[in-house]
């Protein structure tokens, strides 16, 4: 082992993080990023319906404020890792919509050259580490990303996302202990969208407050309204500052809601149409941000401009994803430890 890293060196803040509420400019940016995810996912749903996307496809619609609020609290070089409901995370980290969409259609210009699909994409450049299909598995990997920050004596932070369903996995609790023991710079984010596939949190989890799941290891935590991008950002800024200061991990439980099924084949019989409709009409994060912007006096034309820009990006991504050729079958033999 190399010599122990110097805690003081790790404590230095770097420009890129913001703290507290959002400025009008930031809120506009947040609105734009959430809308991009929403429109991207709607388009992905359409392409799936047309048979251009196959296999598993888990849409993020409804949860956009979570990744956007958190990403705005991060700086360049901070890492992100998540599960298979990952399109929103990728767009939030700055990955290109066209590359994500081309992976969904299984084409050679996709981020994984068509080999990964919806659940398995990476971008070293944007510090996005996937994209994992086994529930909870990314949480222990996130500890390793955080460990490398500590080991290399940087002040970078890893954000490890997982769902309420994954919160019951054994390795999640093992990872909490390890992160607390080693004081790893890791923000654990439980995206509590109320359902692990078709099972509600109440039926799967004895704990009534997931933000307290790190209590045995004294991991500080907060519970956040995940339908409000400002609230998410504020809580994330505090969590990130804690980790960046070398004080160890932090746990955020973000209360959110997915409007669509678990995946494309989910008939959704475990909840009522009214429940979904109520969230859509009363709590939608994008509508909420739009109202705030209007209240701040932002002109309709400025919002319309964002809507048009997002529409253009998504259409361009969809066109690109259909025009890109399929990978050659020989791709099977690349990036494998294999002797033919």
């Amino acid at each position: 082992m190399a010599k122990a890293p110097d805690a003081k060196k790790r404590g230095k803040a770097r420009p890129g993080s913001t703290e507290g509420g959002l400025s009008q400019e930031q809120l506009l940016r947040g609105y734009r990023d959430m809308l991009l995810i929403r429109r991207f996912e709607e388009k992905a749903g359409q392409l799936y319906g047309m048979g251009l996307i196959g296999g598993f496809c888990h849409l993020y619609i409804g949860q956009e404020a979570v990744v956007v609020g958190i990403q705005m609290a991060l700086g360049e070089g901070d890492q992100v890792i998540t599960s298979y409901r990952d399109h929103g995370h990728m767009l939030a980290t700055g990955m290109q919509a066209r590359g994500v969409m081309a992976e969904l259609t299984g084409r050679k210009d996709g981020y994984s050259r068509g080999k990964g699909g919806s659940m398995h994409m990476f971008s070293k450049e944007r510090n996005f580490f996937g994209g994992h299909g086994i529930v909870g598995a990314q949480v222990s990997l996130g500890n390793g990303l955080a460990f490398s920050n500590w080991y290399r004596q940087t002040d970078r932070v890893c954000v490890t996302y997982f769902g309420d369903g994954a919160a019951n996995q054994g390795q999640v609790f093992e990872s909490f202990n390890l992160a607390a023991l080693l004081k790893l710079p890791c923000v654990f984010v439980i995206e509590n969208n109320k359902y692990g596939m078709g099972t509600s949190v109440d039926r799967a989890t004895a704990s009534r407050d997931l933000s307290k799941n790190g209590t045995p290891w004294h991991i500080p935590s907060a519970q956040v309204d995940g339908m409000d991008v400002e609230a998410v950002h504020e809580a994330a800024a505090a969590a990130v500052a804690h980790c960046r200061a070398g004080k160890g991990p932090y746990l955020l439980e973000v209360k959110t809601y997915r409007y669509r099924g678990h995946s494309m084949s989910d008939p959704g019989r475990y909840r009522t149409r009214e429940e979904v409709q109520k969230m859509r009409t009363e709590r939608d994060c994008i509508e909420g941000a739009r109202h705030k912007l209007e209240g701040l006096g932002v002109e309709e034309a400025a919002i319309k401009q964002i809507d048009d820009e997002v529409k253009r990006i998504v259409q361009e991504a969809a066109d690109f994803a259909q025009a890109s050729p399929e990978p050659d079958a020989a791709e099977l033999y690349t990036d494998v430890l294999l002797e033919v």
């Binding site: 080999k115 699909g117 399929e326 990978p327």
Partner: peptide
């Protein structure tokens, strides 16, 4: 199958 993971895109999936 060849000693390779199963790929997503149909041409790669079919190759195993």
């Amino acid at each position: 199958a060849p000693r390779a993971p199963v790929g997503y895109a149909p041409p790669v999936e079919d190759a195993v």
